[in-house]
Design a protein around this nucleic acid. Structure first.
Lengths: 157, 157
DNA sequence: GTTGCTGCAAATCCTTTGCAAGGTT
DNA sequence: AACCTTGCAAAGGATTTGCAGCAAC
C-alpha cells in the first residue's frame, strides 16, 4: 500500500486546496522516500521553490494528516509521511490514534497500533501510586533497526 | 522527595562545574514549580541574567540529567526537572530509563516506569507483521489531568 | 593563579508574515 | 472573474558564538 502522490492530491482537493505545481513537487519529493524530513530538507531538495511555500504546504499537509511529526531519539522533531492513503477516496487509512516506529539507521517510519499497549497505558490510571491522574492521551515512539537495515547491517558474530 | 536546589548544586560539583550566583538563581527558579518550562520562560523570570547564561546553564543541567525534555500534546518540547535527587550523594534517583506523565492542565510532570509497558513494547518485535525490527529504545509520554487538577476541576455532573 | 563563567552583542538558524504578481478553478 | 497561491523580502523568535572582564576554586 504505497503512499502515492495521486492520492495525496485527492485529499487536497477534498479539502478545497488547489493542486499547484509547487505542491506537486513537494508531495512527490516527500513521497519518494519513507524517511523523516524537515522543512529545510525539502527546501534544500527543491531550491527553486520559495521557503514560504514549502513551510505553508507542509502545514497544510499536517492539518490534513498526510504528514505528522515524530520525535527522534535526539529529542528533535521531524516530519514523516503518515498516510497510507485509500486510492479511491483519497482518505488516510491511518487511524487518528497511532504510534511510530522510527529506524535509528535510516529513519524510516512505520505505523502501528497495539491493543496491548493501549490497555496497559489505561491501566496506569490506578496503578502508579497516586501520581497518575485521569489519562487523556499518550504518545509512543519506538526506536528500532528496521527489518531492511537489520539485514544490511548484521550484528558482528 | 523534593527536588532541592542544594542537591542539584552537589551534582554540579560532582561534574566539575562551578556553582555561581546565576546558576543558583536558575536552579532555584526551575525547582520552585514542577511545571514544564522553556529557556525563554527562565529568561523572562530572571531578566537580569544574560540569555546566553540561561541557555548554557540549561544545557549543562540537561547533560547532567537534572532536567530533561518532554514532548507536549501540541508537539512542542519543553524542559522539566527530572531529578528527585538523593540528598546524600546528589545523584539523581530517576532511573536512566523512565517515562513522563504531563498534566494537560498545569503541565506538572511526574515520572514513572511500568514493567508491564516495557514487556509489551519488547513483545512488539515479533508481533507487528514484519514492520517492526530490532527494538532499541522507546519513548512514552502520557497526558493526563493530574490528581491535584482533577480535584480542582471536577467533571460537570 | 588558573580555569571557567558571565554578559553583551552579533551572528545564525528556523519560521512566519505582508504584499504584489501570477495561477487555478 | 473570484479566489487562492507563490515568491520575495522583511520581520520575528529562538539559540549559539566570540570575546573581554570577572569570579570560583
Amino acid at each position: 500500500m504505497p503512499r502515492t502522490p495521486e492520492s495525496i492530491f485527492k485529499t487536497l482537493v477534498n479539502r478545497n486546496a488547489r493542486v499547484t505545481a509547487p505542491r506537486r513537487e513537494i508531495i512527490d519529493c516527500i513521497s519518494k522516500v519513507p524517511r523523516t524530513f524537515t522543512a529545510e530538507d525539502v527546501c534544500a531538495q527543491l531550491p527553486h521553490i520559495g521557503r514560504a511555500t514549502v513551510y505553508r504546504t507542509l502545514k497544510i499537509l499536517q492539518d490534513a494528516n498526510i504528514i505528522c511529526k515524530v520525535v527522534l531519539p535526539n529529542d528533535e522533531m521531524a516530519y514523516s509521511v503518515s498516510a497510507d492513503l485509500d486510492q479511491e477516496s483519497g482518505v488516510s487509512r491511518v487511524p487518528a490514534h497511532h504510534h511510530h516506529a522510527v529506524c535509528t539507521v535510516c529513519t524510516a517510519v512505520r505505523y502501528f497500533n497495539a491493543e496491548a499497549i493501549e490497555r496497559v497505558i489505561h491501566a496506569l490510571s490506578g496503578s502508579v501510586q497516586g501520581v497518575m491522574g485521569e489519562i487523556i492521551d499518550h504518545r509512543i515512539e519506538v526506536y528500532d533497526i528496521c527489518p531492511r537495515c537489520v539485514v544490511q547491517n548484521p550484528e558482528p558474530a
